[in-house]
Design a protein around this nucleic acid. Sequence first.
DNA 1: AACGGTATCAACCGCTGTCCC
DNA 2: GGGGACAGCGGTTGATACCGT
Length: 345
Amino acid sequence: MTKSNSTCENNNNGLKKGPWTPEEDHKLTHYIQKHGHGKWRILPKNAGLKRCGKSCRLRWTNYLRPDIKRGKFSLEEEETIIHLHSVMGNKWSTIATNLPRRTDNEIKNYWNTHIKKKLLKIGIDPTTHTLSLEVLQLSSILNSLYTSPQFNYPSHFGMSDSVVNNQSQILNLLTTFITCQSRNQDVMNNNILHQNQIGISTSSPLLQNQPCSQSMQLNPIQPFQSNQPQVQVQENHQPCDTSNNPFHIESQLMKTKLENQISPNLWQYYGGHHKQETQSSLAMQRVNNLLENQILTCNNEGMLNFNLNSVLSSTLSYSSHGTLNSSSSIEDERDTYNSKCYFLY
DNA sequence: AACGGTATCAACCGCTGTCCC
DNA sequence: GGGGACAGCGGTTGATACCGT
């Protein structure tokens, strides 16, 4: 089969390319209204157009068709696109069938020019629809550090406050995390309440190679000193008070700023207010990512260990293109801290 | 006003799938 | 089964509108 026959252009034969003129649009529309479409190869000749059939077909299907809806996408449409993309990927034509009167080309363009950037901005990988690994690593370590009463961030990193405050990107990531975390917390608390009511065991299916419960939620990571006895995690752990966190006010401001840029429903979609199932699968993916990268490890007691060494290495590597510097104090502290994270079911 | 960088989106390209002879 | 014609798909390009300096 020859491929070139089906494409537009071998057109050194006087066929026009480029933007369509109103006259051409009128000729095409008029012809199709009178004769219908189809037989695209002979259509341009009959319609008096110096275009190839494929060009005519695309112009009609993507622009001239009377049933096409043009203009700004609504929030509902945007959310539909994001949801469908998370399920089926770049299947633009399939996605378009779920958005009446929108063309696949328009949806594809909108994805590439708007949605993709929006998701990246809030730290979500537009390909996998999960929080990027950088966010996971950074947010994990920051959360771990600030929930530790002994930890003085950022001096622990050998950085001055001004240096840290200039790390807008990092603050952005932190903000994303805190936002998602707080929303996760709502869902998780509901789950705990529900499970306590119906008496579900808290043992981890993940660690027992069993299918994971749909209600699994990632819980805040609890830091501890490795030279101290490990304290068993309390099941009814309360979220830590963030009001004294040095990042809290600024991150809340940035959170508001970010939230104004995207719809509340999108936050819910990724934040887990009502989409518990989706959020659970996201959490599962996060855990798998961390396990794959040896950032989480599993000990003999079935406890997940959070390897701060790995996270420090990764995070510092990630930050190295910014102005964050590693310092000797970091090296000194690497072996001092281990963190444990746990999951509630 | 002029300029340069960025965003947008219509249009194109290359390829695959399907139908028909 | 093979080949041609055509439709459809997804990735990419390029003209131009827009915006900041």
